[in-house]
């Protein structure tokens, strides 16, 4: 039953993506509203599908949160991406977030729903996964993946747009006011920050803290399950690589002596590749993390 719900949600995400694509070539806000409504309806159905799958696992006598295999991880990853879109649906950069988020959410869910290589069956948990840390680790990691993925995409676009504007030398996103006094105690009325960069910062900060929590909760779980908090398993190593790259992005945007914007864009692109490899690529390396 939950699989049918996810199939319908996949189509909703596709429709939302198409509407956002039309919105990109049209100034009419109607397209944006329609795309958002479809995406939010899809998210509601998606949430219902996850709850339904949880109930199904109870009915089958396994009773575990649907976060324990590759299929369920794809479903939750897709849900996380859509959730972040929903959280920024009222921001000034909502259209560009939707244009990035919805195709990703659609592809992830389509892969889970329609790929013959992904097994959707509900199976009992192996002993290592029977832990309260499963939920904390997987939820924080996938929310972190989703936010960092969107941070990279929105950041690259926003910084590239900045690069073609004049008098915007900083990669920090904040506009340094011109020196000297201005007469009158009135707000100048200009914006301090670019909406695209504001959204990028929100994603970057949320993603970084969530992904860090994901690594820390994974370490605690590893300590309990395998007897060590860090073992240089390929998954752990690539999570660290991703973390190091985004730490570098944060330092590039936090310092007083800011690096060139191009460098930040390159770092964000590298971070994007790292997330994808940490999730998908590591499956092709031998390790203890049996699924994504």
């Amino acid at each position: 039953m939950s699989a049918t719900v996810f199939s319908v949600v996949t189509l909703a995400y596709l429709a939302s993506f198409v509407l956002f694509a039309i919105r990109a070539s049209s100034e009419k806000d109607t397209w944006h509203r329609a795309a958002t409504m479809v995406a939010l309806a899809g998210l509601a159905g998606h949430t219902g599908g996850i709850v339904l799958r949880w109930v199904e696992s109870y009915r089958q006598g396994m009773a575990h949160v649907p976060l324990s295999n590759f299929y369920e991880s794809l479903v939750f990853f897709s849900w996380s991406v859509t959730l972040f879109f929903a959280l920024t649906a009222r921001s000034r950069a909502r259209s560009r977030v939707g244009a990035f988020a919805m195709p990703i959410a659609f592809l992830l869910l389509a892969y889970a729903s329609f790929s013959p290589g992904v097994d959707p069956s509900i199976r009992p948990l192996v002993p290592a996964l029977k832990s309260d840390w499963l939920v904390m680790h997987v939820v924080t990691c996938f929310l972190g993946y989703a936010a960092l993925l969107l941070a990279s995409l929105t950041g690259i676009l926003a910084l590239r747009e900045k690069a073609v504007q004049k008098g915007e030398p900083s990669a920090s996103g904040e506009v340094e006011p011109a020196p000297g006094p201005r007469n009158g105690l009135q707000p100048a009325g200009r914006k301090d920050t670019d909406p695209g960069l504001e959204t990028f910062d929100v994603f970057l900060r949320s993603g970084y803290i969530l992904f860090t929590l994901g690594i820390v909760t994974g370490s605690v779980w590893g300590h309990m399950a395998w007897g060590r908090y860090w073992g240089w398993d390929p998954k752990e190593t690539w999570a660290l690589i991703t973390w190091l790259v985004y730490t570098c992005v944060l330092h590039a945007r936090a310092g007083r002596a800011l690096p060139r914007r191009k460098h930040v864009i390159v770092l964000l692109a590298v971070g994007l590749v790292c997330i994808l490899f940490t999730y998908f690529g590591v499956n092709y390396l031998p390790g203890l993390h049996s699924y994504a």
């Binding site: 240089w232 190593t237 660290l240 190091l244 790259v245 570098c248 330092h251 002596a257």
Partner: peptide
């Protein structure tokens, strides 16, 4: 220096990549 921080972070990340490509004998 913050530049040194960035260089070191990327250096450690690069070595981690190497560790998953070159077979390890730890």
């Amino acid at each position: 220096s913050l530049t040194l921080t960035r260089v070191l972070l990327l250096w450690l990340a690069f070595l981690c990549v190497v560790a998953t490509i070159v077979p390890q004998d730890p």
